[in-house]
């Protein structure tokens, strides 16, 4: 089968998953349960995506832990996203130099 057909199906399904709820849902949700659920969802998604994957993100557990600790400390003090993200990476890189 042609690769372009695969790509078309892939992109089409992925777009519809995003566009249908975003484009067609217009009402304000009044249910307290649903509102609470939707409030918590982003944090829960990011948490599940980060733990434990972050520990395997640099090919080395020690450098990853170093980066994670740095990110936790900096984000605790509410530094900007980019500062936290790049410091974590720099920390992992520098730790790698000493291994």
């Amino acid at each position: 089968m042609r690769v372009s057909v695969y790509i078309l199906v892939m992109a089409g399904v992925t777009y519809l998953i995003r566009a249908l709820p975003f484009g067609c849902f217009r009402k304000k949700i009044t249910s307290k349960f649903l509102r609470s659920f939707l409030y918590y969802i982003p944090y829960a998604v990011l948490s599940a995506m980060t733990i434990p994957a972050i520990f395997y993100s640099t090919d080395n557990l020690l450098t990853a832990v170093a980066g994670t600790v740095i990110a936790l400390i900096l984000s605790f003090f509410e530094l900007p996203l980019i500062v936290v993200a790049l410091s974590a990476s720099l920390g992992a890189f520098l730790t790698g130099l000493f291994l």
């Binding site: 918590y40 982003p42 944090y43 829960a44 990011l46 948490s47 995506m49 980060t50 994957a53 972050i54 993100s57 640099t58 090919d59 080395n60 450098t63 990853a64 980066g67 994670t68 740095i70 990110a71 936790l72 900096l74 984000s75 605790f76 509410e78 530094l79 900007p80 996203l81 980019i82 936290v84 993200a85 790049l86 410091s87 974590a88 990476s89 720099l90 992992a92 890189f93 790698g96």
Partner: peptide, 30 residues
């Protein structure tokens, strides 16, 4: 290899501050 952690660092920067302020968010995150 070190670039692999960038996105996760950003995720932490998004979830940590509200977890610090609201016990409910902290519980959900944990």
């Amino acid at each position: 290899a070190a670039l692999g952690i960038v996105l996760y660092g950003m995720f932490l920067a998004i979830i940590v501050p509200p977890s610090r302020k609201e016990k409910s968010v902290l519980c959900v995150v944990l």
